[in-house]
């Protein structure tokens, strides 16, 4: 991985301090070879002032400011799209797991931040919902720049969650969503598959687009432990003693079955399902979003 793309490596991102900067890095890396979105919104909103640069349209000069301060500044306006994007980030106990430098929760936050940044660039309104067995934190969708900073700040300060219950937060969100939009679920989906699928299907039934990023650690995907050990669940603290060499095949079969089931049932419901390995770059996720966005 070279050039800007290397910044899509989660391990590299982990060494970058600010989540804002991480998001920028990721998005710029992904977008470096893509076209800008041609979409325009139906309304504009003042965003900020900046120094006038020769070549800027004179219509954008703020004459009142010039009259008061003798400085040439231009007004910047942001477009607001009609698409509300809801980022649902799982912060349950199981998301705290990480077999390398990046935990699933870190990865989910990077991804959420990057998506938020990208959505912001796309002039989409972005909202954030953190959940474990219920909605822990919720920021309503908005396309304002200040809102983006609020989303990023919220992502940086997310509390630690407890047990996972994906279905309940989905039901809660479905009740409060007033209009169609985009729901992005970032979770390890270590929950009862029936509940998860049922919860996601209700968005599709309302016409809401849904992207599911199934975030799993490489160890969860490949189970490369060896020898006997006591495996302790992060959420329930229940323990299972097993010899990894003995149970590996059974486990991988069960995990593959779970992934295949999600892929099959969610795909059948018109839901974009993407399995993400926390050791892999984030571009797949962003590309998936842009691909979906290009369809809407």
């Amino acid at each position: 991985m070279a050039g800007p793309a290397r910044y899509l490596d989660p391990a590299v991102l982990a060494r970058i301090g600010s989540l804002d900067l991480k998001a920028r890095t990721v998005v710029e890396g992904v977008l470096s070879g893509l076209h800008r979105s041609p979409r325009r919104g139906f309304s504009v909103e003042f965003a900020e002032y900046r120094q006038y640069i020769p070549g800027d349209p004179l219509t954008l000069l703020d004459w009142k400011v010039y009259a008061r301060s003798d400085r040439h500044v231009v007004k910047k306006f942001e477009e607001e799209t009609s698409l509300d994007c809801h980022l649902l980030v799982d912060i349950s106990g199981s998301m705290a797991y990480g077999s390398h430098a990046v935990t699933k929760r870190d990865y989910a936050c990077y991804l959420a931040a990057s998506l938020a940044y990208l959505m912001h660039r796309q002039r989409d309104a972005v909202g954030l919902i953190a959940f474990d067995e219920a909605i822990v934190q919720r920021l309503g969708p908005s396309a304002r720049a200040t809102h983006l900073r609020a989303v990023l700040l919220a992502l940086e300060r997310l509390p630690s969650g407890a047990k996972t219950n994906v279905a309940r937060p989905l039901e809660d969100l479905a009740r409060v969503m007033s209009k169609r939009g985009l729901v992005v679920v970032i979770s390890d989906l270590l929950d009862r598959p029936d509940d998860v699928v049922r919860g996601l299907r209700q968005f599709r039934q309302r016409g809401t687009d849904v992207i599911v990023f199934h975030v799993l650690d490489p160890q969860e995907l490949r189970f490369q432990f060896d020898g006997a050990a006591r495996f302790r669940d992060l959420e329930s603290a229940s323990e299972v003693f097993a010899d990894a060499d003995v149970v590996r095949d059974d486990y991988l079969r069960a995990m593959t079955g779970l992934i295949d089931r999600y892929r099959r049932e969610l795909g059948g419901a018109g839901i974009d399902y993407h399995l993400l390995d926390t050791s892999q770059p984030l571009d797949l996720a962003l590309t998936s979003y842009l691909t979906l966005r290009s369809r809407t």
């Binding site: 797991y97 992060l234 299972v240 097993a242 995990m255």
Partner: peptide
Amino acid sequence: TDRVVEFPATPMLPEAPVQQQDRR
């Protein structure tokens, strides 16, 4: 000194080894 591994997908591990551990 029994090795403890925190693993979120623990519920997906097969049950049989647990009984073996109980026996052990």
